[in-house]
Computed example of a mutant assay.
Amino acid sequence: MKAVSVKEIRQELKDLSPTEIQNICLRLSRFKKENKELLTYLLFESHDEAGYIESVKNHINESFEIINTDSYYYIRKSVRKILRNVKKYIRYSQKKETEVELLLYFCKKLKTFKPTINKSTQLQNMYLRQLNLAKKQLANLHEDLQYDFNLVIEELEA
């Protein structure tokens, strides 16, 4: 079965009643955890972006606390998993401010992580890539936000 384009889906959704759309959304939420997470964000958390950011930061903190520090292999594996989740949460929000704030918070947690990331080239590269990505997205933000985030970036680069 070949999936149809978003344009065709949009057109078809226009023809459906609200009850039918509700049933489709509920059915969609049963199939994949990510679909359910996205619906949760859209229905319950999208109106309070600051609260959403705080909950993601708490999730990042918890994830960093349970990292197995026996070897750098396990640390890299866990950090990649945390980053994958952060990117997923950023995709749900689709707001540049949220993306920059979460990426900078991830970088801050990674930089202060013990044992230090300086002994692993892969972790250093991951840190630098995310910092550069945050800098790139920073150009699209309002000047006041750019100033505030630039202070954080300078602190992270020091």
Results as ranks from 00 to 15, higher is better:
residue 103 L to V: 02
residue 40 T to S: 02
residue 72 Y to M: 13
residue 103 L to N: 11
residue 87 K to V: 04
residue 68 N to M: 03
residue 65 E to M: 05
residue 96 K to N: 10
residue 43 L to A: 05
residue 95 K to W: 10
residue 53 I to Q: 11
residue 72 Y to G: 10
residue 88 K to A: 06
residue 70 D to Q: 11
residue 101 E to K: 13
residue 52 Y to M: 00
residue 95 K to P: 00
residue 75 I to E: 14
residue 90 I to K: 13
residue 43 L to D: 00
residue 86 V to Q: 14
residue 90 I to E: 12
residue 44 F to S: 02
residue 103 L to P: 10
residue 90 I to R: 07
residue 86 V to R: 14
residue 50 A to H: 09
residue 61 N to D: 15
residue 65 E to C: 04
residue 55 S to R: 09
residue 96 K to Q: 15
residue 62 E to C: 00
residue 55 S to I: 00
residue 98 T to F: 05
residue 41 Y to S: 02
residue 77 K to E: 15
residue 70 D to M: 06
residue 99 E to D: 09
residue 77 K to M: 11
residue 78 S to Q: 13
residue 87 K to S: 08
residue 84 R to H: 15
residue 42 L to W: 01
residue 39 L to C: 01
residue 52 Y to W: 02
residue 44 F to I: 01
residue 57 K to G: 02
residue 71 S to P: 08
residue 83 L to Q: 15
residue 100 V to I: 15
residue 48 D to C: 01
residue 71 S to H: 14
residue 52 Y to L: 00
residue 97 E to H: 14
residue 91 R to G: 06
residue 51 G to R: 03
residue 91 R to L: 10
residue 57 K to Y: 04
residue 50 A to N: 13
residue 90 I to F: 09
residue 65 E to S: 08
residue 91 R to Q: 10
residue 43 L to Q: 03
residue 85 N to R: 15
residue 68 N to Q: 08
residue 55 S to V: 02
residue 67 I to V: 15
residue 81 K to G: 05
residue 57 K to D: 02
residue 42 L to R: 04
residue 42 L to N: 01
residue 44 F to W: 07
residue 68 N to Y: 05
residue 84 R to A: 09
